[in-house]
Design a binder for these strands. Structure first.
Ligand SMILES: [Zn+2]
Length: 530
DNA sequence: AGTGCCGGGCC
DNA sequence: GGCCCGGCACT
């Protein structure tokens, strides 16, 4: 509704890049203090152009023409075709009509080649205007495209935020996210190395920090408590105590969803221009995710939709092997990672971003392989069991190696422990020590874990029937774990259902009275919590 | 089709 | 509150 975001107000207060006085070097940033319009049919812009009075970062005040500033913009670091998230939609104004002139126009001049699905630059200008550290990286987007469709939706600020100085292109950031995620996982889970400091990868750290502040802010908090919650514990969530919008909010690449502004509402608020409210969205538990696989090889951001594809890609392109699909030693696993995204819109963005161009900061590839970067070969031929946690498995680093696996084992173990003790109504199973029970409980589906603790990995040493699948699971788990900041720990983005059996299953409908009350009331089981 | 459980309604 | 259940996500 009343969305009115004022029409393109001037860009006063906006931060802009201006050509460096010396003519060449890096552009300086400054804040627009005033804007003047001049009649002067100049070249490009059409009838009029603006002159900006900019307060430079060094304190001086200068005037720049539209073009100059524009140039500054376009040379912004990343040249990413990134598209990302902005969800444009314009309710009432937003679209291009209104604001003609300004920065937008200039930008368009040079940035559109890449991403077709860009959003309108307008929006960008808008945001920028707030003066607050701008964030959304989507500076260069073409505006040409008929965004009309998009515009129909509500406009939401992108989830990715970018700090002006950050010199990375969006894609780089994306890659880094993935990479860092991996790093963090392996490290943080390692019993030996508990501290977060990821040494040697400060670059990664850097963005991680940045993005967590500006980009994602997963405000997930699900009242994971018992059904008799004692109030949602919003730990230190600075933002509004708003209702649990999305529990599944952060997928690494989740960008502004087609619906509300969930992930970044916090940001939005600060932005001061939160025009939209959350729509009704009655129950949003829907999860139409799409899985993509991204190559983590240095400077390669290839994204494919199938694991096989990406594996092949890595094997042939990066590892220099050429045999076919099926026989792999599993090494490729280390060089790609799975990413989930919901709906197509996002997918588009990713794909468009795949053609990476080597730029300043190169993403750090899977840290643990760090040394083994050069096309190594099947060093440890643990055999192609991709059933594993991609990394950590046949790895060289002792540390990382033990970490994740340990974690998983423990985890599963724990889970079983919880259930095992339960006395199953049916048989008395005369002498049924652990072995018996375990057998009993082993769920056929996610047997990866359980098996490993019980019997030698022989099981899957052979040829993994459906590697991708299990792989997938692993990864997703991994990702979700790390994508959530430490504090949000308790709440996973979702509660991967299934897992342990609950009262109903254990006791059966017949013995309903044996269920815990929660179960009886169709609430979250209290007896068998996962 | 079955399970787990959220959101709600009724008392 | 206790209790029940519609309905949905997920398997
Ligand atoms: Zn129960």
């Amino acid at each position: 509704m009343h969305t009115r975001r004022l029409v393109k107000r001037s860009t006063l207060g906006s931060r802009v890049y201006a050509p460096s006085p010396t003519g060449d070097g890096a552009p300086l940033t400054g804040v627009v203090q005033a804007v003047r319009q001049q009649e002067n049919r100049d070249v490009s812009a059409g009838a009029r152009r603006h002159v900006y009075t900019v307060l430079m970062q060094d304190g001086s005040v200068k005037e720049f023409s539209e073009d100059e500033i524009a140039a500054g913009f376009s040379q912004t670091p990343g040249k990413g075709p990134l598209k990302s998230s902005l969800k444009s939609s314009g309710n009432s104004r937003v679209d291009g009509t209104a604001s003609q002139g300004q920065t937008t126009e200039a930008q368009k001049g040079e940035a559109d080649p890449l991403s077709p699905e860009a959003v309108e630059g307008d929006r960008v200008a808008d945001v920028r205007k707030t003066g607050r550290s701008l964030e959304c990286p989507e500076r260069e987007k073409d505006h040409t495209r008929s965004v009309s469709l998009l515009e129909q939706k509500r406009k939401v600020v992108s989830s990715s935020i970018d700090v002006p100085h950050a010199r990375k292109s969006e894609e780089e950031v994306d890659m880094d996210k993935v990479t860092a995620a991996m790093v963090l996982t392996s490290l943080s889970t390692s019993p030996l190395v508990r501290s977060p400091p990821v040494k040697g990868t400060e670059g990664v750290n850097g963005w991680w920090k940045d993005s967590s502040v500006g980009c994602f802010t997963p405000s997930s908090h699900s009242s994971s408590g018992y059904w008799s919650w004692s109030g949602p514990s919003d730990q230190s969530n600075p933002s509004t105590p708003s209702p649990p919008l999305s529990a599944d909010s952060f997928k690494p690449f989740r960008t502004a969803a087609a619906h509300g502004p969930p992930p970044d509402d916090a940001i939005d608020d600060q932005d001061g221009s939160s025009l939209l409210f959350d729509e009704p969205i009655p129950r949003k538990r829907k999860n139409s995710m799409k899985v993509m696989f991204k190559c983590l090889w240095k400077n390669c951001g290839k994204v494919l939709s199938t694991a096989a594809g990406i594996q092949r890609h890595i094997r042939t392109i990066h590892l220099g092997r050429n045999w076919d699909s099926d026989c792999s030693d599993g090494e490729e696993d280390f060089y790609y990672s799975e990413i989930k995204l919901n709906t197509d819109s996002v997918a588009d963005g990713l794909s468009s971003l795949s053609p990476v161009s080597p730029s300043v900061l190169s993403p750090v590839p899977p840290p643990h392989n760090h040394h083994k970067r050069p096309p190594a070969e099947s060093g440890n031929k643990t055999n192609g069991n991709k059933e594993n946690y991609s990394h950590a498995h046949s790895n060289t680093t002792p540390l990382s190696r033990s970490a994740p696996s340990a974690l998983y084992l423990i985890h599963s173990d724990h889970a079983y422990q919880a259930t095992a003790p339960v006395t199953i109504p049916s048989t008395g199973s005369a002498s049924g020590p652990d072995s018996t029970t375990s057998v009993l409980f082993t769920p056929t589906s996610n047997s990866n874990f359980s098996i490993s603790w019980q019997s030698p990995p022989v099981t899957f040493t052979g040829t993994a029937a459906s590697p991708t699948q299990s792989c997938k699971e692993q990864r997703s788990q991994t990702l979700s774990v790390l994508s959530s900041p430490p504090r949000a720990s308790g709440s996973l983005s979702r509660k991967s259902r299934g897992e342990g059996r609950k009262c109903r299953k254990v006791y059966g409908m017949e013995n309903r009275d044996m269920w815990c009350t929660a179960c009886r009331w169709k609430k979250a089981c209290q007896r068998f919590t996962d």
